[in-house]
Computed example of a mutant assay.
Amino acid sequence: MAETPKSGESSNIDISKLISEMSKLSSPSFPSYHLPTSFNISSLFTVPMDRTNYASWKSQFEDILEMHGLTAVINNDTKPPKMQEDGSVHPEFAKDKLVLSWIKATSSSSIKTLLIPCTTANQAWKMLAKHLSPLASTRIRILRDQIRTLKKDNDTIVADYLNYAKSLVDSLVQSGATMDDDEFISYILDGLGLEYKELATTLHLHPNINFDQFYDLALREEHLQKRMSLTLTTGVAMAADRVPNERNFNSKLPSHNHTNFRRNRGRNWNQGRGTRRTGQWEQTQKIWPSNQPSQHREWPSNQHSQYRES
């Protein structure tokens, strides 16, 4: 007859076996590595990567890879195996797919189309460097030229001009280049023209001013110029109104003054200048000029007949 186990002994054996089996089921396939599946990389890239900001995206993406210990993934030329001998996913393959998904998640729609043929993170990394690095260098040169040749139009207010200039330097930073505030402000000031020479003097006295401080000073200078222009325009308008007022005052003078003036002028003209004009009737002397022949005056026929009868 088989020996039966003592009370409590069978339960201890069963519990130990159960714990052993559960530990096998709960153990990961590659316990030495944990993928950061809960990490949302899109939250760190508010602007998707495109042809204009590739350099800044590349720099930030490399920092993230280094923080998670995944820098070797983009440098691995060989394609990692997909499965292990026990049928589980190979950890190197999981790392590669994770980095590849990060690249696509932070790219714009046009860049995602470019990355369709890429099956590994290394292929995608090289594809981006091949197609976007030369474009990034060209864009940096274009942005620098646009900043150096800034010019404010007469119809543009200072606030719009400064905001446009700031957008250019922000795009320059996104492209991977830098420009300090002193250089940037000097280009902006050149574009403002001679009307803001007083502002240039202020900046000369305060050489360490930043862009935000310069922004406030430029707006104040514009406001001051508008006030001065309004004062000048008002003075010119008042001077122009003074002329018709004086004319209206002269028109209200007594009319006999003007009559005497015209009467005296007519008398002087007849006496002084009328004697030197030939071929005209002299009002003062009541004579005919000697060099002009007399004219025969024709009488009516009835007057001739009456004269003969008499």
Rank of each mutant, 00 (worst) to 15 (best):
S32N: 02
H34W: 01
S32Y: 10
R242G: 01
L199W: 08
L143N: 06
S255K: 07
L162G: 11
D190V: 13
E92Y: 11
T156Y: 05
D63A: 05
N268V: 12
L189R: 02
H204L: 07
Q146F: 00
L199D: 12
N268W: 08
K126E: 14
E3W: 04
L44H: 05
P31G: 15
N248A: 11
L194H: 07
Q283T: 13
I147S: 04
L143E: 06
E309F: 11
L168H: 07
E62K: 12
W125L: 01
P207E: 15
S56L: 10
N76T: 05
R242M: 02
L224A: 08
M22F: 04
S171H: 12
I64L: 08
T52R: 00
R263V: 06
D160T: 12
E62Y: 00
M228A: 10
I188F: 00
Y215I: 01
N270M: 13
G266L: 13
T4P: 13
N270S: 12
V169M: 06
K104P: 01
E62A: 10
M49R: 06
W269A: 11
V243I: 15
N53M: 08
S107H: 04
S290W: 00
S108W: 05
L192T: 01
S229A: 14
N122V: 10
P31K: 07
A121Y: 10
D86L: 11
Q280V: 15
S42E: 13
T120D: 10
T37A: 03
I147C: 02
Q84W: 04
P254W: 00
F93D: 11
L114Y: 00
M238F: 14
F261N: 09
T113M: 03
D181M: 06
D77K: 05
M22H: 03
K95I: 05
E246Y: 14
W125A: 03
S255M: 08
S16K: 15
I19H: 02
S255R: 12
S32W: 01
T71V: 13
S43M: 04
P31Q: 09
L115P: 02
Q146S: 14
Q271W: 12
L232V: 03
H304D: 01
S88Q: 07
S10A: 12
I15G: 02
S23T: 09
S251H: 02
M179T: 09
N75T: 01
P28L: 04
K197R: 12
S108H: 04
N248M: 09
W281M: 11
R220T: 15
T233P: 02
R297F: 03
N154L: 09
R51L: 02
T202E: 14
P207T: 07
P91E: 11
T231Y: 10
M238P: 01
P81S: 13
N260L: 08
N75H: 15
A240D: 15
Q292K: 10
L143C: 09
D212I: 01
T71W: 08
V169C: 12
T178E: 04
S88E: 11
A94P: 01
P300I: 11
T78M: 07
M179D: 09
S11P: 01
F214P: 08
R267I: 09
S171A: 09
F184P: 05
N75M: 09
F261P: 00
S88Y: 03
R308M: 13
H296C: 02
Y215S: 04
R144D: 00
H34M: 06
S167V: 08
I15E: 15
I15S: 11
L194I: 10
